[in-house]
Simulated scan of single mutants.
Amino acid sequence: MSDASDYELSMLVRALVMESNRFLDIFSASHSLHPTDMTALNLIMTARFPMTPGALAKALNMSASATTSVLDRLERAGHVVRDRSPEDRRRVELRVLSAATAVASAFFQPLAVEFSSAWSSLSAADREVVARFLAATTSATTRVLDAVSDPASAHEE
């Protein structure tokens, strides 16, 4: 591949996002999950710390009442529970149930296998470049999302 322009890289990232979204749509539909529910479930599953309903509402850019509706649906479907924090009983934490994790793992395993196959010819140095590229691209996306979701903060510098 010749040197890729910013536009070409942007189009490749866009194509990856579109294909990933199609994959998620299939998973969501096969498990009767609304796309917002799927997004919420993914946020809860991938959070570095126990997610709270308030943090989820902020991440989804939704009101507390709309987030409660999402959590109610996820709870009824057997995907998520709301537990009291062992450190602070006033704090509610969201936890994905192991059955939901197992279903997701089974569905996404073929994609993980295909990724591994696609990446098998990459050297360690190539993988490091790809990892830096993906991290930088994700950070750039997050910065723009933050500015779009909170336009006042974009003018505070």
Rank of each mutant, 00 (worst) to 15 (best):
residue 2 S to P: 15
residue 2 S to E: 06
residue 3 D to K: 14
residue 6 D to V: 01
residue 6 D to W: 10
residue 8 E to W: 13
residue 8 E to Y: 11
residue 10 S to F: 11
residue 11 M to S: 09
residue 12 L to W: 13
residue 13 V to R: 05
residue 15 A to W: 06
residue 16 L to I: 05
residue 17 V to W: 10
residue 18 M to Q: 15
residue 18 M to Y: 00
residue 19 E to F: 15
residue 20 S to G: 13
residue 21 N to A: 15
residue 22 R to A: 04
residue 22 R to W: 02
residue 23 F to T: 07
residue 25 D to M: 13
residue 27 F to S: 00
residue 28 S to T: 02
residue 30 S to M: 11
residue 30 S to K: 14
residue 32 S to N: 15
residue 33 L to G: 00
residue 37 D to N: 00
residue 40 A to F: 09
residue 42 N to I: 01
residue 43 L to Q: 02
residue 44 I to K: 04
residue 44 I to C: 03
residue 45 M to R: 10
residue 46 T to C: 06
residue 48 R to E: 13
residue 48 R to C: 05
residue 49 F to Q: 09
residue 51 M to Y: 05
residue 53 P to Q: 13
residue 53 P to F: 11
residue 54 G to I: 06
residue 54 G to Q: 13
residue 55 A to Y: 05
residue 55 A to C: 04
residue 55 A to N: 10
residue 56 L to A: 04
residue 56 L to E: 01
residue 56 L to D: 01
residue 57 A to L: 12
residue 57 A to G: 15
residue 57 A to S: 12
residue 57 A to H: 09
residue 57 A to Q: 07
residue 58 K to A: 11
residue 60 L to P: 08
residue 60 L to N: 11
residue 60 L to Y: 03
residue 60 L to C: 12
residue 62 M to N: 08
residue 62 M to G: 03
residue 63 S to A: 13
residue 63 S to K: 15
residue 64 A to L: 10
residue 64 A to D: 09
residue 64 A to V: 05
residue 65 S to A: 08
residue 65 S to C: 03
residue 75 E to W: 06
residue 76 R to K: 15
residue 78 G to W: 02
residue 78 G to T: 11
residue 79 H to S: 11
residue 80 V to I: 12
residue 81 V to E: 14
residue 81 V to M: 07
residue 81 V to N: 09
residue 82 R to N: 00
residue 85 S to Q: 08
residue 86 P to F: 08
residue 87 E to Q: 12
residue 88 D to V: 07
residue 89 R to N: 09
residue 89 R to A: 02
residue 89 R to M: 12
residue 90 R to G: 06
residue 91 R to D: 07
residue 92 V to A: 00
residue 93 E to R: 11
residue 94 L to W: 07
residue 96 V to E: 04
residue 96 V to H: 01
residue 97 L to E: 05
residue 97 L to N: 10
residue 98 S to M: 07
residue 98 S to P: 13
residue 100 A to N: 00
residue 101 T to S: 07
residue 102 A to M: 09
residue 106 A to H: 03
residue 106 A to S: 01
residue 107 F to E: 05
residue 108 F to T: 14
residue 110 P to C: 03
residue 111 L to D: 04
residue 111 L to E: 15
residue 111 L to N: 11
residue 112 A to I: 08
residue 113 V to G: 11
residue 113 V to I: 05
residue 113 V to Q: 12
residue 114 E to C: 06
residue 114 E to N: 02
residue 119 W to N: 07
residue 121 S to N: 06
residue 122 L to E: 15
residue 123 S to V: 13
residue 124 A to K: 14
residue 126 D to H: 12
residue 126 D to C: 09
residue 127 R to Q: 09
residue 127 R to T: 00
residue 127 R to W: 06
residue 128 E to C: 07
residue 128 E to Y: 06
residue 130 V to L: 12
residue 132 R to T: 12
residue 135 A to N: 06
residue 135 A to D: 10
residue 135 A to M: 04
residue 136 A to R: 12
residue 138 T to K: 14
residue 138 T to S: 14
residue 140 A to D: 08
residue 141 T to D: 02
residue 141 T to A: 10
residue 141 T to E: 07
residue 143 R to N: 04
residue 144 V to T: 09
residue 144 V to P: 02
residue 144 V to D: 06
residue 145 L to Y: 05
residue 146 D to S: 07
residue 147 A to N: 02
residue 149 S to W: 10
residue 149 S to G: 01
residue 150 D to R: 13
residue 150 D to H: 10
residue 150 D to G: 01
residue 155 H to G: 14
residue 156 E to K: 07
residue 156 E to L: 11
